[in-house]
């Protein structure tokens, strides 16, 4: 088996707050193979966005910091790079797409200029060449009349168009890895499907790896080969998508899947919910962080944190004492 493109080991990201140090990402390890799409799932505040930002060295410092762990991309260690080394990684080797297309572009410059800036930052090309490349990328992501659109300012484009521009910008330097943080959440439903389809198609065309951060299990099912479920800063389950949906091992994953509305199945009076709330990150329990919300909780669950361990035949891992 070839070495994975991205290998994250024991990543810890901490934020100092007035009330104390918060571990937003706690001992997270995973790998992404070349050309693979990995879904990173979890509810708000579980650490999935911070994990994504850490991969680009974008954790706001201070108050945040990468406390320990290693991020190896394509053989290069990224943890602990200085600012100028990071700049040659960002955009060229790893690119990131953000949730809010409405505010993610600079409102006072034409989208063409912003794309040309990125292209010329990483490639030794003339303005004219960069412009041609930008137009080509815009056409690739499905923007009609790209040679006209490139002249426009972000506010003249719709949300879906802006997100396409972001994707075009992200792909323009052919990065090895694309981190997409809720790329379709802010779009309306019809646009969501189109943009997602486009992303998957381009990801295959470019042979990139992709980390898709989302809270939408449907998006994961549609576009990922592997998924990681995060809860309160830790990975609780990691499995191939078919395996994850067919047989969720962690009670939290089971709860997430059960709370997706299904159209074709029998009517149920109420959608199941996971009772309770996420533990306070400043005041974490000794044992399993999901214990208070878990319907299978045992006494020993509260004593020590379960480790992420392999389970079953497939390449699955789960952090639970009483997995399904």
């Amino acid at each position: 088996m070839p070495a994975p493109l991205l290998e994250v080991n024991n990543l810890v990201v901490e934020f100092s707050t007035d009330a104390g140090v918060v571990r937003a990402v706690d001992d997270v390890s995973f790998s992404v193979a070349a050309g693979e799409t990995v879904g990173l799932v979890g509810e708000s505040g579980c650490g999935k966005t911070v994990t994504g930002l850490a991969l680009l060295g974008l954790v706001p410092t201070p108050p945040g910091r990468l406390a320990s762990g290693s991020i190896r991309l394509d053989g290069q260690e990224l943890a602990g790079l200085d600012d100028s080394s990071w700049r040659s990684v960002r955009g060229r080797k790893v690119a990131m797409i953000f949730q809010e297309p409405m505010t993610a572009l600079n409102p006072v410059f034409r989208i063409g200029n912003q794309m040309i800036d990125v292209l010329r930052q990483h490639q030794r090309i003339t303005r004219r060449q960069a412009r041609a490349a930008a137009i080509e990328m815009l056409a690739k992501v499905g923007i009609p009349a790209p040679d006209k659109r490139i002249q426009e300012y972000p506010h003249q484009l719709s949300g879906g168009m802006r997100q396409r521009v972001m994707i075009a910008m992200a792909l323009s330097c052919s990065p090895r890895l694309l981190v997409a943080d809720e790329p379709t959440t802010a779009l309306d439903v019809t646009t969501q499907a189109q943009v997602l389809e486009q992303m998957v198609r381009l990801q295959q065309e470019f042979g990139m790896s992709m980390i898709l951060i989302t809270h939408d299990m449907g998006v994961v099912a549609q576009s990922c080969s592997k998924a990681m479920v995060m809860y309160s800063g830790r990975v609780v389950e990691q499995a191939p998508v078919t395996e994850l949906f067919a047989r969720p091992r962690h009670p939290y994953t089971g709860g997430l899947l059960a709370s997706i509305p299904r159209i074709r199945e029998q009517r149920i009076p109420e959608l199941p919910v996971i009772e309770g709330t996420v533990p306070d990150p400043l005041n974490l329990p000794e044992g399993c962080r999901f214990a208070d919300r878990c319907n299978k909780v045992r006494d020993y669950c509260r004593l020590a944190q379960p480790e992420l361990k392999p389970i079953g035949r497939a390449d699955s891992k789960v952090a639970c004492y009483v997995p399904d």
């Binding site: 990071w86 700049r87 960002r90 060229r92 993610a104 600079n106 409102p107 006072v108 410059f109 930052q121």
Partner: peptide, 23 residues
Amino acid sequence: DHVRTARAFGIPPAKIFYRNILK
């Protein structure tokens, strides 16, 4: 957000300062 975007694409700080922040 657009300042973070510019950083995520490796734009150098001086340029970000002028084009994203000052402008």
